[in-house]
């Protein structure tokens, strides 16, 4: 491995890592919002909306991100909607992640016995208060491992962004390989940067899981 090449490429990788992280974070946050809404709609059996949410979850989870991105990138302009690559990337990631987040949260909510909600309501809490102080804290605690796994999975999925000409880590690596045949150095830096992004996320996730595991069980 040529160290001077590594040094030369480093700034390029740093820049594209930043892009990966930025778009990834935005996509994941949006996915969480979509996930919370879909999980709530399905858990509380809101008529009509629950059907839409169920269909969305199936579509988002059972189509590849690459296909979703192509659809947004090449399909939407045909319908007269102009989209730039960054918006496409974030929207695609949010669309894919929303389905996964929704299912993780819903299983957490369903793990909380309905009588816990009844107990909260019988004390005179409003439904919103009961959800906020009794249902959600328990549901999130159950869902946390799945949510953390989703975050890591979605950050890795950003490697598909290069397909819609976003200069993410993958794009940069492929570009440098194509231009200068510096295959070993590029792939080495690619792996290192993904690890630099994902290892802290993973560690943070484990910490969070431990902090939120209040009880195991026992009411």
């Amino acid at each position: 491995m040529d160290q001077s090449v590594l040094r030369e490429y480093l700034p390029l990788f740093r820049e594209s890592a930043w892009l990966t992280l930025r778009l990834g974070t935005m996509g994941i946050l949006l996915a969480l919002v979509i996930g919370i809404l879909c999980a709530a709609v399905r858990y509380f059996r809101v008529p009509v909306l629950r059907g839409i949410a169920a269909a969305y979850v199936e579509v988002s989870r059972n189509t590849p991100l690459l296909v979703q991105l192509f659809f947004l990138y090449y399909g939407l302009p045909k319908l007269g909607v102009r989209t730039d690559p960054a918006v496409c990337g974030v929207a695609g990631l949010a669309f894919l992640g929303g389905g996964y987040m929704a299912e993780a949260l819903r299983s957490g909510m369903e793990a909380v016995e309905p009588i816990q909600m009844e107990s909260a309501l019988s004390l005179g809490l409003t439904p919103v208060q009961a959800i906020r102080y009794v249902l959600l804290p328990q549901a999130v605690s159950v869902s946390t491992p799945a949510l953390v796994a989703n975050v890591i999975f979605l950050l890795k999925e950003t490697s598909v962004f290069s397909a819609v000409s976003l200069m993410d880590l993958m794009f940069t690596a492929k570009d440098l390989i194509g231009l200068y045949y510096a295959t070993t150095e590029s792939l080495f830096l690619l792996v290192v940067f993904y690890l630099l992004i994902l290892l802290p996320v993973s560690a943070l996730g484990s910490l969070l899981e431990r902090r939120l595991r209040y009880a195991g069980s026992g009411t």
Binding site: I115, Q116, G124, Q138, Y214, A215
Partner: peptide
């Protein structure tokens, strides 16, 4: 209803304390 339920205390067979 929430205000009325405050006047009716209920204790369940399975306790239903909030584990968190």
């Amino acid at each position: 209803l929430p205000r009325l339920r405050q006047k009716v205390g209920m204790v369940f067979q399975s306790y239903e304390l909030f584990p968190h």
